Simulated assay, not measured.
Amino acid sequence: MGAVCVFASANDTLAASLKQAAEEAGAGIARLGHSVVYGGSSRGLMGAVARGAVSAGGRVVGVMPRHLAGRERAAIDIAEIHLVDTLAQRKQLMADLADIFLVLPGGVGTLDEALEMITWYDVGLSRKPVLFVDVEGFWRDFAQMMAGLKARGVLRADIEGAWSVLPDVPSALAVIASSFAPRAA
């Protein structure tokens, strides 16, 4: 069993279709037999991921800075919640607990988390892949920006293995399934 860290928005005002995709991702990760590690919120896409995983019998681990616990309503129906002091500690613990990263739609916090994991890959601190799920074309502009950085020679060629942009949740789940060695009988 592995652990998939999911980065996603805690915004409650996102489209129902994005929440449905997040719930599908959480349930799919659980059905694959992997734990979900995420930001610990019960709101927005984060909450949908957790609810999906829990409803499918999965193990969910939240990591939340204390100063966000009230605003983001820390989830209480998950296996574990780790309260940390800073966002940097949150990212470090999530990275330590995870084998692979899944990025759903989100804002600057989601981008910060995902880009830090790509940076860690670039500087040799991690070789864990980052999978962006392009729900409704959400990450299209990001993919274009990264292609532009590559074209300008800012990105090294070997960093491309750090991330991929996948068209939907089933495609991401297929990559996750193939990323873990089969379990011993």
Rank of each mutant, 00 (worst) to 15 (best):
S55T: 13
D112M: 05
R43I: 02
G137E: 03
A21M: 01
L173F: 09
S55H: 14
S42K: 12
E136N: 09
G161M: 00
P167T: 02
D85L: 11
R156V: 07
G39Y: 06
A79Y: 15
N11V: 00
I78H: 11
G153T: 12
A22F: 00
A147N: 12
K150T: 12
D141V: 14
L87E: 05
Q20F: 01
L125S: 13
E80F: 10
G26H: 10
P182A: 12
A8L: 11
V165L: 04
G148T: 09
G44F: 12
G70S: 11
F7N: 04
V63A: 01
A48V: 11
D122A: 15
W139N: 00
A50L: 14
A10I: 12
M94K: 01
G26K: 11
E72Q: 13
F142C: 08
L125C: 07
I81R: 10
P105W: 04
A157M: 04
E80Y: 13
A184K: 11
V103Y: 00
A181S: 12
R90C: 03
T119P: 00
V135A: 09
R140M: 04
E72P: 09
I159V: 15
V133R: 00
V4C: 05
G62P: 09
G2N: 07
A95I: 00
E116R: 07
T13A: 14
G124T: 08
M146D: 06
G109A: 03
P65S: 10
G33D: 09
P182I: 01
Q89L: 09
D122T: 15
L131A: 01
P167Y: 04
K91L: 12
K19T: 07
Q144I: 07
I118M: 15
Y121W: 15
A22T: 08
L18Q: 14
P105N: 06
D112T: 06
A147G: 09
G39L: 07
S42P: 03
T119D: 05
V84N: 02
V6P: 07
F180Q: 03
F101G: 04
F132P: 03
I81C: 10
S126Y: 06
A98Y: 02
R90F: 02
E160W: 10
T110F: 03
M146N: 05
G107H: 06
H82E: 01
L68I: 08
D122K: 13
G58P: 11
L93P: 06
Q144M: 09
M64Q: 10
L87D: 05
A184D: 12
V108Y: 13
A151M: 12
F132V: 02
Q20T: 13
A22G: 10
Y121H: 13
L83Y: 14
G40Q: 10
G124V: 08
R43S: 10
A16Y: 00
S35T: 13
A25D: 00
E72D: 15
S178L: 03
K150Y: 09
E116C: 11
D96F: 01
V130P: 01
Y38A: 06
A3K: 07
D85F: 06
A147H: 09
G39E: 09
G62T: 07
D85K: 14
R73M: 12
R73A: 13
V63Y: 00
F7Q: 05
S42M: 09
K128Q: 07
A162N: 04
Q20D: 14
P167R: 05
G161F: 06
S179P: 03
A172M: 02
H67W: 14
K91Y: 05
